[in-house]
Simulated assay, not measured.
Amino acid sequence: MIGSPFPTHDTCDDNSRRCGHIISLFGRIALASLADYATFLAVIDEGSLTFAATRLGRSLQSVSRSLARLEDDLGVELVSRTTRRLHPTPAGLEFAGRIRLALTTIDAAREDLLASDRRLAGTIRIGTSSLFGPEFVTPVLSQFLARNPEIDLELVLSDERVDLVAEKLDFAVRIGNLPDSNLRTRRIGGLSWAVFASPAYLAAHGRPEHPQELSRHECVLRASDDDRWAFGGNKKRIEVHGRFRSESAAARNAAVASGFGIGLAPLWQVRRLIDQGIVEQILVGHEPPPIPLQIVWPTRGAGAMPRRVRAAIDFLVARLSALRI
C-alpha cells in the first residue's frame, strides 16, 4: 500500500510541538492552494494578469507567481500567454469550469460558518441610478454598514441598464419596467409620478385641468421620448411638444423650475421643489401608473447567493418599502 504523504498520529512522537508544527504547515499549504485556484479563475475571467490583480487587490507579481505555482503543481499549462492578452488553454478552460463550482461551494460554506455567530463579512457591489441612489439607497446602506462592521460596499451609479455580470455587480436597484431577461427580480414597490410647473409658467399660460389640455402647452421632454405621455389606469397617451429636451432628469426638472414648461417626473425627484414652492403639482389624480421599483440580480447557476448579499437585499427591501416614496 502506498503510504500517505502526510504524517499520521503514529508518526508523531510525544513531542507536541513537532506535531503542532506539522499541522500548522499543512494548514498553510491548503490555504495557499485555494488562493491559487481563485487567482487562476480571476485571470480566466479578466483575460489579463493586470486586471486580475486589480480585482483581487494584489500585486501583479503576486498574481503571476500564484498562476505559475498552480501550473507547476499540476504539470499542465493552464493559460497561453501572448504579448497582448492571456487565453485559457483547452485544459485550462475545462479545469476552470470544474473548480468554479467547488470554490463557490467553499465560499458558501464559509458564509454559513460566519452565520453561526450572526456575523456578515466580505464585499458587496451594488448598482443603482445616479439620482435615486444617493438620495435613497445610500442612507439605507449606511445603516446596513453600521450594523455589519465587517462588510465593505461599493455603490456603482449609472443611468444605463448595465450588464450585471460584466460589471461584477451582486445586484442592482432599478426603476421602471424591465425587459425580458434571465435576471431574478424582487419587487420593492411603486414610485408615484408628478406633473408640475413653475408658478410663473402657470400664471402666464394657465393651469391645465385635464391631461388632454397638455397638447396646448409647452412641455419639457426627455430627448428619447416619443412625444406622448401616458395617463391614468388605462395609460391613455397624450401627444405633447416642447422646445427643451434632455436625457438628464436633473436638467429637465431645473428647466421646469425656470419656467420653460410643464414637466413629468417621479414625485421623489421634485418633492423638495414642491415643498419649497418653486414648482406646483398639477393634474393631481390624473398621473400615470406608479413606476415599478425592484431589485435585480443575476442567476447564479448551481452556486448559492452569498449570505451577505441576501442580507443586504432583505435590508434594502424592508427600508425602501417603508419609505412610501
Results as ranks from 00 to 15, higher is better:
R84Q: 05
S24E: 11
L78G: 05
Y201F: 13
I2W: 12
A249P: 00
S321V: 03
E111F: 04
E160M: 13
L49P: 04
F51A: 15
I151R: 02
D225G: 01
E71D: 14
D159E: 15
Q276R: 03
F171I: 00
T8R: 13
K235S: 14
R308E: 03
D314S: 10
G259L: 02
Q212S: 15
P266C: 01
V220M: 07
V317T: 13
H21C: 02
V270Y: 03
L31N: 10
L273Y: 08
G3M: 11
R119A: 06
D112Y: 08
S246R: 03
F260S: 11
L103C: 09
A257P: 02
P288A: 12
S258F: 03
I175Q: 00
L49G: 02
R237E: 11
I188P: 00
G127W: 03
H21F: 09
R110S: 14
A223Q: 14
D72N: 15
V195H: 07
C19S: 12
A255H: 01
H9P: 09
S4W: 07
L74Q: 10
F26P: 00
W268L: 06
P292S: 05
T82P: 01
V63P: 07
E77F: 07
A35D: 14
D180K: 10
A30R: 12
I278G: 01
L145N: 06
A265M: 01
G277V: 03
A254Q: 15
F315Y: 09
R307M: 10
E218N: 14
V76C: 08
A102R: 15
P5L: 13
A257Q: 06
S224I: 07
A53N: 01
R58F: 10
W229F: 12
I99F: 10
S248N: 09
R147L: 15
A251G: 06
E160F: 07
R161Y: 04
V256D: 04
D72C: 12
E247N: 07
E280K: 01
G127L: 06
P139N: 07
L273H: 02
V140I: 14
R310D: 13
R245G: 03
L114Q: 09
R65A: 13
S215C: 12
R69G: 09
A250P: 03
D14Q: 15
P199I: 04
F136M: 13
E71N: 08
D275M: 04
C12H: 14
R319K: 13
L49F: 13
S80T: 05
L273M: 11
P7C: 01
E287N: 02
D10H: 11
P208K: 12
A172D: 00
N15M: 03
A109R: 11
F171G: 02
I99P: 02
S321T: 00
S24N: 07
P298E: 02
A230Q: 04
F260T: 03
R98Q: 15
F171Q: 00
V256T: 06
F132W: 03
R222F: 15
L34S: 10
L214A: 08
R100F: 04
M305Q: 12
P134R: 01
I23L: 12
A318D: 10
L169I: 08
Q61N: 08
L49Y: 08
P149L: 10
S215E: 13
G242I: 12
E160D: 14
V240E: 09
L67D: 04
S129F: 05
P149K: 09
L191M: 06
